[in-house]
């Protein structure tokens, strides 16, 4: 067990150090979501005047978006880094060592989770500075950070699966627009009950990203909403399990080649 933990730690440290050495990998997930938050919260402030809008602060409403957007960047980072390991032959060399398969995935995801936690701390910090107060209080902050870690893990596992199947960083990057579609066709900018176009509301309702956003949003503007939390954590857990199982299978296939 200790040997397994050591293997995970060494690979996770490598993953974190490698990410920190690429400024673009650190800065983009921090700056871009904050920029979009600034633009949208300024431009859509008038939306809070719609009857039934759940808060008077659009920043509080929109603060959920960076958490999910940051996780999308985590997916890309995890996938691209692992694809590079495949392309450079690092994974092949690793497969010659006694390193366990789960340790390879765990190490890779450990780095993603660490970065995800750092991102979440920055987003919360910026939110607090600009006047957002969590309706769920200090305990809610802990739950929020835990959720951010879970989402980074689940999305990171999806990124590693994509990398292991394609073996190409470019192909992983090509998935970014597809993930972005999920973000935009969701309750990202407006609550689902205020969506007027039926097909869009249906698509947003069927989109799991809506529930991840609503989970974060509930902690910020509602307080303790059991249904939103259960849906958010449940979907994240489901995505994580499926993506991890798929990644593990893909790694087994790739190492057998």
């Amino acid at each position: 067990m200790k040997q397994f933990a050591d293997q995970v730690f060494v690979l996770a440290r490598r993953s974190v150090v490698r990410t920190l050495r690429q400024p673009a990998s650190v800065i983009s997930p921090l700056v871009f979501p904050m920029l979009l938050l600034a633009v949208n919260s300024g431009g859509l402030k008038a939306e809070t005047r719609l009857p039934g809008f759940p808060t008077t602060s659009f920043v509080a409403f929109a603060l959920a978006v960076p958490f999910i957007q940051g996780a999308l960047f985590a997916t890309m980072n995890a996938g691209t880094d692992l694809a590079r390991d495949i392309q450079t032959g690092f994974l092949s060399r690793l497969s010659l060592t006694p390193m366990r398969r789960l340790a390879v995935l765990g190490g890779q995801l450990g780095g993603v989770v660490t970065l995800g936690l750092l991102q979440a701390l920055v987003y919360v910090g910026v939110g607090l500075i600009i006047g957002v107060r969590l309706a769920s209080g200090a305990a809610g902050l802990v739950v929020l950070l835990l959720f951010a870690v879970c989402v980074a893990f689940a999305f990171g596992a999806m990124g590693t699966f994509a990398a292991l199947r394609t073996g190409s960083g470019e192909a992983v990057q090509g998935l970014f627009p597809a993930f972005f579609v999920f973000l935009f066709i969701s309750s990202m900018n407006i609550p689902r009950n205020l969506m007027e176009i039926t097909w869009f509301r249906d698509a947003a309702t069927a989109n799991p990203v809506s529930y991840l956003l609503e989970c974060v949003r509930s902690l910020i503007i509602t307080g303790w909403d059991t249904e939103a939390l259960a849906l958010g954590f449940g979907i994240t857990f489901g995505l994580g399990v499926v993506a991890l199982a798929a990644s593990s299978w893909a790694l087994k296939v790739r190492m057998a080649r």
Binding site: L44, A46, L50, N189, I190, W199, A204
Partner: peptide, 16 residues
């Protein structure tokens, strides 16, 4: 995609 997301998702903004 942007047209769909903005015009479809945010159509209630016209009631502001």
């Amino acid at each position: 995609f942007f047209f769909t997301a903005f015009a479809g998702g945010l159509s209630r903004v016209r009631d502001v």
